[in-house]
Write a protein that binds this DNA or RNA. Structure first.
Length: 646
RNA sequence: GCCGUUGUAGCUCAGUGGUAGAGCACUUCCUUGGUAAGGAAGAGGUCGUGAGUUCAAUUCUCAUCAACGGCUCCA
């Protein structure tokens, strides 16, 4: 007999070799029908795998993340079975479940075959038929030799490659119906659980993620235990599309692109420019308060500067090619730091000048690969909320921490709470290739950054091989509505460029020392930040950012003069206000203004004119009663000043 | 850059081997209307660009540019 401990602490006795599914059945048949997998002593297992020793057991259903992941993993196998049935002879690489977007994919070498999105419906149909058969996922342990023989016979170089890293005792195969795959598992009990399937798209993906390798065909899909859940998911996807910043950016007149100007080159329309100016105002206020000095530097520089900085060898490919003038090569800058270093170097510095903080909304140009461009999130001309802090080692912790506090201050203003702080570290095997070859300095600065994060009590994740070439950094990662991950803001340590630029300050004992540099951009770039804000607020920007804050809507043209008088009064109070004097009915004016997401509407007619008042309507909420113009102005002036988010 | 898809009016989209259509937006007129679309008329497109096939191409083929979905990349 073995003792099974359930999550509530209850202990039960079972025969050795009992499965989690049988245990579920002993609790209730209804529960057993929902069990997808089991967590045995913290490890996810097949629900049908015999348990041989005492164990802590948690039954996993659709309500558990691991239950879903197992479900999608099994769905990937089901898709592979359908693909193999329809296209015999294809070879499979890997087919994992994924969280973002939800579902699964399988990478497949189709040989000379091509499939397009039209074939997906057909594949789905085959999957449904196979699912209905309710075939069990059967686990089988194999020796390495058996496994190698199996795939050698199939001529499957991909699975043989996977096997190379595995040894006897850790090789398992799973079979469902006619499909057998090398797989660590676990899987759901049988295909009958998969009731709703949607293959979403088809894409190329390099083998092992390396662009030098062959490109395989990746099919993405998602599946659910019921049609209802699939339908709900599809509705959710539709909703997400509505807040896509590219759609909102067009509807709200924020920005535009033009073929004649070039891909990834954003032109900010008047409405978008208002947002930019408000953000800059915020940044300037905040930075002034934090002791930064503002500078302005050119968008280009000579080649020699980027050789000094060390950027050119790393990033020449993603810089616009140089232009030649009087025998000199000039580059459009793709970063502001070298210019700022030159500002530091312009006058001799003493320890009394440190920390020396220079800020600039710097325009930079990056020749991003064409396939990478994405709305406002990934562009070729960007405006960075940039600043560089030159400080001593002793000052570093306070400075770095102050920058982090600035992030948090901003995030509070914008109500940003769904982000991941990422401590981005170097990868020791890429020293001298991707990272400056200073193993000791890397170790030292990484520890410094980690300590700051710990001291601030900020939750974060550590990731290898994401550092800048000159030092470790903290990135703030966010997701766009369609699930793509982006770095919104960044705070970086640089122990390298100070020396390459021979930056120095005089210490109290009259020695020269190289400062540490912090690169920081808490508001990222205008492009990405506004793209993010549009999605974050679903286009309903808070009052202080709204391009048009108030729209005055006269009931008929008899009241246009009064509307204009009200508007003038608001404008004098620095409120962005417009009058809708079109020959339209009030319902139409309201509708159009609502769609443009203007925060406040002031409706004026006979009544308001006589009483010298306005009828306030709040965007998305409706009628908010009649008020005097001065009272209304005073109220929203406070709302704007406080940069309220609601 | 790579794989795949798409490209028709300002926007959203129909359609065709015989040089194009809808709704919204726009202009004018009627209407002067009280909290999410009043009515009528009009104007607007060398069907992304270039080449080829054809008596004839927006439609078929190729190239190219751009956008979209991924992959790779992201100082």
């Amino acid at each position: 007999m073995i003792t099974i401990t359930l999550p509530d602490g209850a202990k039960r006795q079972y025969e050795e070799g009992t499965t989690a599914l049988e245990i579920a059945k002993s609790i209730s048949e209804g529960l057993a029908r929902k069990v997808l997998a089991a967590e045995i002593n913290g490890e996810v297992w097949d629900a049908t795998r015999p348990i041989k020793d005492d164990a802590a057991l948690k039954l996993l259903t659709w309500n558990d993340k691991d239950g879903q992941m197992t479900f999608w993993h099994s769905s990937a196998h089901l898709m592979a079975e359908a693909v193999e049935q329809k296209y015999p002879g294809v070879k499979f690489w890997v087919g994992p479940p994924i969280e973002n977007p939800r579902g699964f994919y399988y990478d497949i070498d189709l040989g000379d075959r091509k499939i397009s999105e039209e074939d997906l419906a057909d594949l789905e149909k085959t999957m449904r038929e196979l699912a209905k058969q309710g075939n069990a996922y059967v686990r089988k342990e194999m020796s390495k030799k058996e496994a190698v023989d199996f795939f050698s016979e199939k001529g499957d170089e991909y699975k043989l490659d996977l096997l190379q890293k595995l040894s006897d005792g850790e090789i398992t195969f799973y079979t469902q119906g006619n499909f057998t795959d090398l797989c660590r598992g676990p899987h759901i009990p049988d295909t009958g659980f998969i009731k709703a399937i949607k293959l979403t798209n088809i894409a190329g993906a390099y083998w092992k993620g390396d662009e030098k390798n062959k490109q395989l065909t990746r099919i993405y899909g998602v599946s659910f235990p019921s049609q209802k859940e699939l339908d709900e998911y599809l509705v959710l996807l539709e909703e997400a599309k509505k807040r896509d910043h590219r759609k909102l950016g067009k509807e709200l007149g924020i920005y535009t692109l033009d073929d004649d100007v070039g891909p990834g080159l954003i032109m900010w329309l008047p409405n978008g420019t208002v947002i930019i100016e408000e953000l800059e105002k915020l940044a300037k206020e905040t930075e002034l308060e934090a002791g930064y000095k503002r500078v302005v530097t050119p968008h280009i520089a000579k080649e020699s500067m980027y050789l000094t900085s060390g950027h050119l060898p790393y990033y020449a490919d993603s810089m616009y090619p140089p232009m030649e003038m009087e025998g000199e090569k000039y580059y459009l800058r793709s970063m502001n730091c070298p210019h700022h270093h030159k500002i530091f170097a312009a006058e001799p510095k003493s320890y009394r000048d440190l920390p020396y903080r220079v800020a600039e909304y710097g325009t930079v140009y990056r020749y991003e690969q064409s396939g990478e461009l994405f709305g406002l999130m990934r562009v070729r001309c960007l405006h960075m909320n940039d600043a560089h802090i030159y400080c001593t080692k002793e000052q570093f912790n306070d400075e770095f921490r102050a920058v982090n506090d600035m992030y948090l201050k901003y995030f509070k203003i914008f109500g940003i709470d769904k982000y991941v702080m990422r401590l981005s570290l170097h990868s020791p095997d890429k020293l001298g290739i991707k990272y400056v070859n200073e193993p000791e300095l890397w170790k030292e600065t990484e520890t410094m950054v980690r300590n700051v994060l710990r001291a601030s009590d900020i939750p974060y994740v550590e990731v290898q091989d994401e550092a800048a070439f000159y030092g470790p950094k903290i990135d703030v990662q966010i997701y766009s509505v369609i699930g793509r991950e982006f770095t919104l803001a960044t705070n970086q340590v640089d122990f390298s460029q100070g020396r390459s630029f021979k930056l120095q300050y005089t210490t109290p004992d009259n020695q020269t020392e190289t400062p540490l540099i912090i690169h920081r951009a808490p508001l990222g770039t205008h492009e990405r930040f506004i793209g993010f804000l549009l999605e974050h607020y679903a286009g309903k920007l808070p009052l202080w950012l709204a391009p048009v804050q108030v729209k005055v809507l006269p009931i008929s043209d008899k009241f246009t003069d009064y509307a204009k008088a009200v508007s003038e009064k608001l404008k004098k109070a620095d409120i962005r206000c417009e009058v809708d004097d079109r020959n339209e009915k009030i319902g139409k004016k309201i509708r159009d203004t609502e769609l443009m997401k203007v925060p406040y509407m002031l409706i004026v007619g006979e009544k308001e004119l006589n009483e010298n008042k306005v009828a306030v309507r709040v965007q998305g909420k409706g009628d908010a009663g009649v008020k005097g113009v001065d009272e209304f102005t005073a109220e929203i002036t406070v709302e704007i000043k406080e940069r309220r988010s609601v």
